[in-house]
């Protein structure tokens, strides 16, 4: 593949993704491309499959059919002679290290200090010397506006601060792609802004991101593409101005009317 072609081809390519929990079809044939440096916002009513789609991208959920490809690698599988063979734990772990994820409930490690949270993965996975990782952690904390809070334990921070630490923790692995699963849904309203500001700053710096959120204002301002899911299918997708202002699909119209 030439350099030009590599730049053209999407960083994330999702094809025919299906997933069901028991009888409930959560993802029902999802196709999606995300180009490098772009921000894609996933919207949709609860139960529409947004979170499951996001979690399938780093193989926290195993798809029943279809595949997710990130920078040319199929996640969780190896293509061989017309079949997709499931990868072992080690290989999946290696793939995940390049995809950062930020959770609704932050999921910081409560028994480790902020710096230890940030240093853990680079040291254990990449073999970065601890001192070097700690220095980098300091830079990242400054970037998310938490310089000097490295020795605090997560419980000593506000929700907004914890989520910013979680973002810094994901960044510490220098991921190709960042996934956000409702990053502001667990926050008090007055703390939402500080987290969205950090995410917007990342978007401006050219980070490729897929964000599940209910913050329509954020989607309008930051997203390159807005994708609307309903019952496990993408029913609407396009530039935010288009999708948010003139939704064609009836379900999208109803949803936007309710949240705006």
């Amino acid at each position: 593949m030439s350099a030009a072609a590599a730049a053209e081809s999407p960083l994330v390519r999702i094809r025919g993704l299906r997933k069901s929990f028991g009888a409930h079809q959560v993802l029902d044939g999802v196709d999606l491309d995300v180009r490098r440096g772009e921000v894609t916002v996933l919207l949709g009513p609860s139960g529409s499959g947004k979170s499951t789609l996001l979690r399938t991208i780093n193989h926290l959920e195993r798809p029943d059919a279809g595949f997710v490809e990130v920078s040319g690698d199929i996640i969780g599988y190896r293509y061989h002679a017309g079949r997709l063979h499931e990868l072992g734990n080690r290989s999946i772990t290696r793939q995940r290290a390049r995809i950062g994820m930020v959770f609704q409930q932050f999921n910081l490690f409560p028994h480790l200090t902020v710096v230890e949270n940030l240093v853990e993965a680079p040291v254990a996975v990449r073999g970065v010397p601890r001192r070097q990782a700690a220095a980098r952690a300091g830079e990242l904390l400054e970037r998310v506006g938490l310089a000097g809070r490295g020795d605090a334990y997560p419980k000593q921070l506000s929700g907004g601060q914890q989520q910013r630490v979680a973002i810094a923790r994901a960044l510490a692995m220098d991921p190709d792609l960042l996934l956000f699963d409702e990053p502001t849904s667990a926050l008090d309203p007055e703390l939402v802004g500080e987290v969205l500001a950090v995410i917007k700053d990342l978007a401006d710096s050219g980070m490729t991101m897929i964000v599940v959120t209910h913050e329509i204002g954020f989607a309008r301002e930051v997203a390159d593409t807005v994708v609307f899911l309903d019952e496990g299918r993408i029913v609407e997708s396009g530039a935010p101005a288009e999708v948010l202002a003139r939704p064609r699909h009836e379900r999208a119209r109803a949803f936007l009317a309710a949240v705006l």
């Binding site: 926290l60 772990t93 995940r96 950062g100 994820m101 409930q105 999921n107 490690f109 853990e120």
Partner: peptide, 26 residues
């Protein structure tokens, strides 16, 4: 909490490391 394991997995930590360093201490 299951989220602890998921967060560690998302960071690319291996199973043994997650058990010893993240889950067991908690």
């Amino acid at each position: 909490d299951r989220g602890q394991t998921e967060a560690a997995q998302a960071l690319g930590l291996g199973n043994a490391r997650i058990f010893r360093r993240i889950v067991l201490p908690q």
